[in-house]
Amino acid sequence: MKHGIRHWGPGLLMILPSIGLVGLFVYGLIGWNISISLSDEHGSIPVDTSGIDNYTSLLQEQRFQDSLENLATFTIVFLVGTLFFGLMWALLLERGLRGEGFFRSMYLFPMAVSFIASGVVWRWLLNASEGDDATGLNRLFSTIGLSGLENPWYSDPGWGMAAMAMPAVWQLSGYVMALFLAGLRSIPDELREAARIDGASEFRLYRHVIFPQLSPAALSALVIIGHMSLKVFDLIMAISGEARITEVPAVYLWGMTTIGDDAKAATIATILLLVVAVVVIPYLIFTSRWERR
């Protein structure tokens, strides 16, 4: 059925303000940001690079590479942690047991809290002091006789960023659980029954019937958690501030705006955008195809 502009025109008109706002604030500003990143607006910093040189010099920088490495560690732990706990909780709650709603709500509640607020308590929990001076988790460990577990958390040069991901895992595992629960609940009972009638063991049922059905939920979780992780900022500012040892690109960017090096800040921002786009665009294409089927 073909409609003329008389039919769809009003619809377009109704959405036009939003198109204008999103066009300006999202795409217009992205373009503007890219143009700053290619400029020589380094403030009072005596470097005069511009254009693509801004990108090459940033990518060669030790500091930026370190921040990417930190981000990678953080992201891997964040993803693995949330998927692991999310899946485990979903499986534990899946088949309905008394109090399911209670557990589900409790596991989800950290999601309602801001990283800034939870950062306050995690900063205390992840205090690096050990032994007699310990507070936070280290104190708990030594009290319950697990002194061997005491460690410097995010102050550790090697695995600090893995510790930094713990609050993020705490906060978002419940969300991944909810995704998996929805996935599990959408698997038709007939499918399970058919498998059982075929004599499949519970293990084989999960391995060959249930888990394959969950992969779309896992994919959503990966992309959603992944893109949150790549732009992590609040959490790190709340816990360690601008310490170099936990620096990620978003925090580096903040530092550059503080000293007025706009071109460098914009360059970091553009690289962040590209990294996120690489993750998100294929996902959006994939889901829209899926939807059309």
Binding site: V22, L29, I30, H227, L272, L284
Partner: peptide, 28 residues
């Protein structure tokens, strides 16, 4: 009340949800 290319507009909206807001912060 879809109009031609409504899908494209929707996709562009969706991407706006995922962008790291740092990427528009300085110009903003």
């Amino acid at each position: 009340w879809r109009f031609p290319r409504a899908n494209v507009v929707f996709a562009l909206f969706l991407f706006g949800m995922f962008i790291p807001y740092q990427a528009i912060m300085l110009p903003l």
